[in-house]
Design a protein around this nucleic acid. Structure first.
Lengths: 351, 351
DNA sequence: TTGTATGCGTTATCAA
DNA sequence: TTGATAACGCATACAA
């Protein structure tokens, strides 16, 4: 047991040191202190500046962002609305965004929808009430009120990964078309000749739509290749198994393209239940790189998203707008990177 | 192309509707509106209350939390400092905490250390400057200034998963001793007889210390069982392989207990490189349940942490303190759940 | 170049 | 029971 007494659980809230305290200590007015803080370049007698500076240091003063926000309407806060924090992609983006915010002296306010798309509007309004200067949205955009809520706030917004209908905003995302093409071409080059694209139920989610459309376009360019698409619902695991059996019945060298990590998990589960092996019985590439991809079966090939860059760019976009730049809405599409592992390459070897 | 004009990217900040507007519209004073909002139970003429209520509804008024915070020092904000948002455990806790906060009408302010333990103090101070009412810390506690910073703020703190020396606070965590015992007993009962406990470098992290100590205690209770511990550093993957080879040389039925998901990943990688199979060449249980545990090798046995409950309880503790309750620091230890998969049970079958 | 006074949106203290 | 009015901590127009 340590013998020295520990501090109490909550001391009487060591009343904040304010700008007035600094002014007193320096023997100047509050206005002078404020000027020293905000417009240091301007008009300031060196001697006074010195006095203020030492007073600030002595008192350990730092201005209250809340009071500043109240006064000038800017809060150094950025709101982040995430459809589901459990989603590794969302977390990766969050991480990138958070880093960029910190570097720029902003703090992130988080609102997690917990996959309840109807609360989007609540989220935006809650965040807005704290005067967030801008919003990063990684959500479905299914809440009717959301777009209106954003517009009402009149604050810049960046959409990540998912577009919203009716919302005029910057958009940062993986180049979905390119990613699907990259995966498809790699599978064909590796000797697989019958493709199945599996997605979560599209349900109006733009990234899912884009990936599915990209797959169709890819097939259209390769008339000699057979291909099909399937939307796998979480409740219907049997459906996926049926699709896999049909796929293998159709082609000698069937391969699967998973549209994201959730589907990859589901497919890996089905493949295990069927007793198949990736890379021999079934070729595989999945969008989304994960730490476990190398460890499932013989190792799963993936398309890695530049998640960190996505988060950073989303923040950068927002900060640019906050600087006052009035540009037309931008789209930033970043390429995915193919990570080749045995799940996609064994076929040729065996062929 | 949609033909209807979209709203501009940023409208001139539809100046907030304030309590004064409501007062005007209702033909009462601001004070009355404020009273209606805050002490509805008290003294209020029904007719006036009605007028205020309709005015609020008509204007869509909601009070500014910033102004409220400035005035009463309470912000409805809770600060969450996380050592590393990439860590699934942290995210799971975050999720639980975020849910509980929302239910209680609080918003979460996030600060991610990005595994830079030295920034803990910055984090606490940044959060405190926004008047967060309390702090949830899932950090190393290696930053000397941190405890002092917290004490200075005089706000309640809850520690999750990792204790801090010198910090008087509630503590919410997995029952590490119980979890390790549960895993160890399960391995022995399944017929494995030579155990290796693998942890990340202890480095003063309390949860790692506790798990390692629990393993030693477990061994002490079972004199007939051989066992060893190993701290696996990220830079030294070869070291882990060496340990595995030695383990298998020592015992006929060797099993490994991984202290968390990071180690599980590392072990799975090493096992793959060695060409071993979980459940036959090596028994395995890892602390931390993950979505991919069923898919690695034959399926990995785990001890699932009640992450959601941890997050919720951490928040609940904080909220209780905020209610003004002045209790001695509490410890809440939640049991882990054994999830049995083939990695730990095949031995007996084969025996 | 510095100080005074006002207001940001609330709540709280006092009178009325 | 309600209404002025003064803070909360800060930034700024204006006066000095």
């Amino acid at each position: 047991m340590p013998s020295k007494p520990l501090p109490p659980l909550a001391v009487p809230a060591a009343s904040r040191v304010t700008i007035a305290d600094v002014a007193d200590k320096a023997g100047v007015s509050k206005a002078t202190v404020s000027r020293f803080l905000n417009r240091r370049d301007e008009l300031l007698t060196p001697e006074i500046a010195q006095r203020v500076e030492t007073a600030i240091a002595a008192l350990g003063y730092s201005p209250s962002p809340m009071a500043q926000a109240l006064k000038r309407g800017r809060s150094r806060l950025i709101g982040l609305v995430v459809a589901d924090v459990t989603n590794p992609f969302s977390v990766a983006v969050l991480r990138g965004a958070e880093k960029a915010c910190q570097e720029a002296g902003y703090l992130l306010m988080l609102f997690n929808l917990g996959d309840d798309g109807q609360r989007e509007r609540d989220a935006i309004e809650a965040l807005a009430s704290y005067q967030v200067e801008g919003l990063i949205l990684n959500t479905l955009g299914h809440d009717e009120g959301a777009a209106a809520a954003v517009a009402r706030q009149g604050r810049p917004v960046v959409l990540v990964d998912r577009r919203h209908a009716n919302m005029q905003a910057d958009f940062v995302s993986l180049d979905n078309a390119g990613a699907v093409r990259l995966a498809g071409e790699h599978l064909l080059q590796s000797g697989w000749d019958e493709l199945l694209f599996v997605s979560e139920p599209i349900a109006g989610v733009s990234s899912r739509q884009e990936r599915a459309a990209a797959f169709r376009a890819f097939l259209a360019d390769q008339p000699e290749v057979h291909g099909a698409s399937f939307e796998s619902a979480a409740e219907d695991l049997g459906g996926l198994e049926t699709q896999l059996l049909q796929l293998r019945a159709r082609g000698r060298r069937p391969a699967l393209l998973a549209s994201n990590a959730v589907i990859t998990l589901r497919v890996a589960d089905a493949v295990a239940r069927l007793g198949w092996r990736f890379g021999t019985d079934l070729g595989f590439v999945g969008i989304d790189e994960t730490e476990w991809a190398p460890l499932v079966g013989p190792g799963l090939s993936t398309i890695a998203q530049p998640t960190d860059a996505l988060g950073r760019l989303a923040t950068a976009c927002l900060l640019e707008r906050l600087q006052g730049r009035d540009l037309p809405p931008r789209q930033i599409l970043l390429p995915g990177t193919l990570v080749v592992r045995p799940s996609s390459v064994a076929a040729r070897t065996l062929g």
